[in-house]
């Protein structure tokens, strides 16, 4: 089996075959970074199928799961010897806002971003705006990703963006928002830089934010 086949198996969500193949490629001394690149290409293919309406959230979750299991096999060899670490695409700080304890959407976005090469720092759920600002200062992320599920916690997104601005951090970080009650209009009204309409949209949106342009 080749790296191309590995990519295809990830796109087809063949969990067991992917894991067997990764182990074989490592045993055949294929460069771990090349294996990682093939896996990321697979995840990109999964994202395309999601965008085209062939895959749904359950498929994305399985893809995220496959990628995590691959990384458990790959991480020890990536960290060993002279292997150069995979370069992160960008650093994202992610949180569900104050008074909202829902994390399914956030976790899915986190797993999709990680699979696409982002370093993701997860602050968890019900995170106060002041705490988010402290963490921005601590981690200096490129992007802040905020999520909520309830209409009544939309204020948490508004208040967090206001706090980030108040503390003079707004110019240092791009902000993307998402979650069930959030719309493109609300995202713009709140002063966010981007809006993730679904579980995968955050990936191209964050890539665009890093390139300094807005994807509509």
């Amino acid at each position: 089996m080749s790296l191309e086949t590995l990519t295809d198996k990830i796109i087809d969500l063949e969990l067991e075959e992917v894991l067997v193949e990764v182990k074989k490629l490592i045993a055949n001394q294929v460069e771990p970074l090349e294996i990682l690149a093939a896996c990321r290409a697979g995840m990109e293919g999964v994202g395309k199928r999601f965008e085209s309406g062939e895959y749904y959230v359950a498929d994305l979750m399985l893809a995220g799961n496959i990628f995590q299991e691959v990384m458990q096999i790959l991480n020890p060899v990536l960290n060993e010897g002279d292997n150069v670490q995979a370069k992160s695409t960008g650093k994202v700080l992610i949180a569900t806002v104050r008074d909202d304890i829902h994390d399914i959407g956030k976790n899915l976005v986190k797993s999709m971003l990680a699979a696409n090469g982002f370093e993701v720092i997860d602050l968890g759920v019900n995170v106060d705006p002041v705490v988010i600002c402290q963490e921005i200062k601590r981690h200096n992320p490129d992007i802040l990703a905020l999520s909520c599920l309830l209409t009544s916690t939309l204020e948490g997104i508004e208040d967090t963006i206001a706090e980030v601005t108040k503390q003079g951090l707004r110019e240092k970080v791009k902000i993307i928002v998402g979650g069930a009650p959030v719309t493109a209009k609300l995202a713009a009204d709140f002063g966010a830089d981007a809006y993730g309409a679904d579980a995968y949209a955050a990936v191209p949106q964050c890539q665009a934010l890093l390139e300094g342009k807005s994807r509509d």
Partner: peptide
């Protein structure tokens, strides 16, 4: 469930964590 006033503000809606 997460009940208002415990873990979240007493003014929040009750929530169903996964």
């Amino acid at each position: 469930y997460i009940i208002p006033g415990r873990e979240i503000s007493p003014y929040s809606d009750y929530q169903h964590p996964d």
